[in-house]
């Protein structure tokens, strides 16, 4: 199995890494780059906790090969806050109690962030549709939905 050199940008930083083809993007993020915010919880696309933005679109990183991201731009939860300032979605999650055990939080933040940047005025249904691919066992989703709607409001204000 031949290793491949890939170049990509993650959270604004250029990286060059050699990977084996059978490694996933999730593996690349957690094991190679040691960014532990992105979580592993099923590795078959069911739970969505490994979701990151790949070229601006959410993907479940357990179902993307690392070699496929050559030339791509990746955003993980670690890239949301800038210059010590929390992103609107992060502020809203704190204020709405949208995090409990916190294990699913990074994935919901990433998808919420993506949604409100794409559509700063989403309906409740659109929020639900966006997060239907993600699992949370603690919150019952309602606080998460409320937080995303609230974050959209922040976005509209600024």
């Amino acid at each position: 199995m031949s290793r491949r050199k890939i170049r990509f940008k993650i959270n604004g930083v250029e990286k060059t890494v050699e990977v084996e083809p059978n490694k996933t993007l999730l593996w690349l993020i957690r094991e190679e780059l040691k960014l532990k915010g992105t979580k592993k919880a099923c590795e078959r696309g069911d739970c969505g906790l490994c979701t990151v933005l790949l070229n601006g679109e959410p993907v479940k990183s357990c179902l993307v090969l690392a070699v496929e991201v050559d030339g791509s731009d990746i955003l993980t939860v670690e890239g949301l806050a800038k210059n010590g300032e929390l992103a609107p979605i992060q502020r809203a999650f704190i204020e709405h109690g949208a995090t409990q055990c916190g294990f699913c939080t990074p994935a919901f933040l990433i998808v919420g962030h993506w949604l409100i940047n794409r559509n700063p005025n989403p309906s409740r249904e659109e929020v639900v549709e966006a997060i239907n691919g993600l699992l949370c066992r603690c919150t019952g989703y309602k606080p998460i939905i409320d937080a995303i709607l609230e974050a959209a409001k922040y976005m509209r204000r600024t």
Binding site: E78, L80, I94, G97, T99, L109
Partner: peptide, 17 residues
């Protein structure tokens, strides 16, 4: 608000894995 919320939304809260 939860005292652990900031760590959790930053993705830096530490879990065993």
């Amino acid at each position: 608000t939860r005292i652990d919320a900031v760590e959790k939304v930053l993705g830096i809260a530490e879990y065993a894995s």
